[in-house]
Design a protein around this nucleic acid. Sequence first.
DNA 1: GCATGATCATGC
DNA 2: GCATGATCATGC
Length: 461
Amino acid sequence: MKLPYNSESKGSIIGYAKLLKGKSLREVCGDEILEHNYKGKGNYGQILEKYYFLYEPNSVSEPDFAIAGLELKSTPLKRLGNNNLRSKERLVLNMINYLEVVNQDFETSSFMKKNANILLIFYLHEAGIDILDYVITLVDVWSFPSTDLEIIRRDWELIKRKIADGKAHELSEGDTFYLGACTKGASATTTRKQPCCDIPAKQRAYSLKQGYVNHIIASIANEPTGIYGKLIPTATVGIVMTIEEIVISKFKPYYNKTIHQIIDEKRIDITIATKNYYANLTNLILGIELDKKIEEFDKAEIIVRTVRLKENDLPKEDISFPTFKYEEIVNEEWHESDFYDILEHKFLFVFFQFEKDELVLRKVKFWNMPYLDMLEAEKVWAKTKEIVTNGTIVKEVRDGIRHTNFPNKKFNSVSHVRPHATNAKDTFPLPNRDVVTKLNDYTKHCFWLNSSYVRDEIYLK
DNA sequence: GCATGATCATGC
DNA sequence: GCATGATCATGC
């Protein structure tokens, strides 16, 4: 059959793909599409391949357009309240073959073979609309800028190293910066053999972090880049330092100095007690203009948290996370929960310590939660889900104070659950009425990291 | 008005 | 002195 484009020509394929802009699958794919069983996720790309590009979907290791060296990827966008476009999710690439990757080099890896040039088709996801009617909004080819590719290469090496160390089952998206190893498959229980360990590992695919995809979108859509400051200048060739090394090298000269000394040395007059105080200080030390976001952190979805330690090294406060909704947690599984999602991120902790009345910078630390601790966090989450489901939040009311069954610090060494609200009347609805108090709504709560855990497993390690 | 990061208050 | 319940402050 004669194709409506030349499958050996990159330009021809891209040109044909760009005709999709502003259209939906229903408009471009012809009538036979209606016979297709298009239910379910992941089907968008298959329909596009079969009914628009007119080739049979495959699962070979070559790019979809092998001769032109182009890999076709379709992925959803969402529109924010301010009308800006963002990626709805991470961009899932090819599967990680645990058995083979340990024998590959990055330059000739299956990852690079497949993804060096990606033809991206972004469609606008809207709730309640048939996937055939999503409007294709952005179409362009993407290849990684060299500074990004250097970071991705290191991410790939880390994933490979972990597999070679027999730890494929311990992989986490928080391990890496731009390129992640995300779970993929019908359920979280789909596992595969790994080469250096007998424990079956969840099957995973290479993926680009949602934050990274947002930057691809901004780049394709020609959005202004002025709101970002960079750690690595664009013109950098052959960088030797990792993001971690750059950040630590910028902070290190200020270790054991007070905040006042740091500001004095920087010769910048930032008003200390104002908004975003610690964020400002971080930017100041990293050499980023104060009102700008850090591009590399944004792409890697790094969560920056400052911790103030007491003189005995214990953080003055536990670390809080966003509140959870009672009605949601009872219907979620651990691997799809918000708490799990947060803990799969990479963190940058900035540790200060009280010394008399001054705060002294002790150190910065990149961190993501180790596998075994994730299992502990899961217990806290599961216990929370259980008591909300059963309506057994409140244990007793004494002197007007409600004592709860939420998992406390004694329950678990990693995490606990505590209120996080404007006041006790700041509530979310309960899916099931609380047995003891008969309440239908309850004060907002969230998951916390125990201060002792932060001290022992993050600060002191 | 609410999400989020940060902090306070009190009893054991 | 810490654990737990409760609340504040700021930005979007």
